[in-house]
Design a binder for these strands. Structure first.
Lengths: 198, 198
DNA sequence: GTCTATATTTGGATAGAC
DNA sequence: GTCTATCCAAATATAGAC
């Protein structure tokens, strides 16, 4: 009897097919928005009948949830990957730029994560967890800048999230609001930082 | 033969029924969102079969367009109704407060006007016109404050629209971001006004 | 693991009678 | 002006054969 862990080819195939289905779903979302996803279409894209998808996901919502989860994990990964810098304000700046980039590079994903336009879809707690973790890192970053007020935290999510919202709503794919990130962050820091040294 | 303009009772009834249909549509939107509107349901709400609605609107999109138009007219009306004040900054402040109130008091309307979540729905030029007019007034208001930069204008729509977006997305019906309006406007004016006298 | 067959619901829209 | 009748399309999901 071998003690070597052997590959479970069955599980691998299963995971690969799940991956394929989710990838197909992202394709649809990118092309025609979240509302355009249907089991029939998804099945066709991976060479199956719609019914066969139920072998991989118990429902359409479960597919949304998986997409929601992996998007949040992606975002959290990017937050964690931000280079450590001496000035905490610089960290917030690169944070904001990264977040903006994340939001505008895929409006469909933005829609799924931040607009919740699917009736009756509530992400599971597991899918939501990475988002909360990311938000906690933002809060910590602001604290490092000397900003601890809860109102200031909300104002941060308001202005950064706001720029992204405007960009995606009014000029998806463009940069009219994206390029304002730096000056808006400067404005924010100037206003909310207790004592800005110069 | 009378020269008095007589009422066209037929036209009146027709207009009243149109009004009733649109009101029913708003009811649905407020309760379950834009996506929940269907001709069958709408018909049932006004005591008709879905098919009869086509006597009043040529399509479902036409209903959306009418809703879109009257919302923009409502908003424009509120902009025009803002009291004239000596300080242009005060005008921008009340403008921002009013806009925020407009956005959060009816998330369904907000969705229709600013998120465009209906696939294939593009508002007609007539429906869009009041919005452009309102935006022009905002631009003029900023100019009165000495702010003429296009980037500054975009930053204005970014931060005000952003607060509204955050409020509706994360805490519809609440005031966590609404109550930040004043301080965020202060921050904006401080930063973008050329020479703030004190 | 994927299929066929099917149930069920829901939707937008048209034709033509009254 | 509203109805009945109807069409057509699309959707989610289940049961059971292979």
């Amino acid at each position: 009897m071998s003690v070597v862990a052997i590959r479970d080819r069955r599980a691998e195939r299963y995971a690969a097919t799940r991956r394929e289905i989710i990838d197909a779903a992202w394709e649809v979302v990118r092309a025609d928005g979240l509302g355009a996803i249907s089991m029939r279409d998804l099945g066709a894209r991976v060479g199956m009948r719609a019914q066969s998808l139920y072998g991989y996901f118990p429902s359409k919502e479960a597919i949304f949830d998986a997409m929601f989860a992996e998007s949040n994990e992606e975002l959290l990964g990017r937050v964690e990957a931000l280079p450590t810098v001496p000035d905490p304000v610089d960290w917030m700046r690169s944070m904001a730029r990264m977040f903006m980039q994340f939001c505008v590079e895929d409006p469909g994903r933005y829609q799924l994560l931040f607009q919740r336009p699917i009736p009756n879809f509530e992400p599971s707690a597991e899918a939501l967890a990475p988002a909360l973790q990311g938000l906690a890192m933002v809060r910590a970053g602001l604290r490092d800048c000397g900003i601890t007020d809860e109102r200031a935290f909300d104002a941060w999510t308001g202005v950064t999230g706001g720029l992204a919202a405007q960009q995606n709503a009014n000029e998806p794919g463009g940069d009219r609001w994206v390029r304002l990130v730096d000056e808006v962050i400067d404005m924010y820091i100037e206003h909310y930082r207790p004592n800005t040294p110069r």
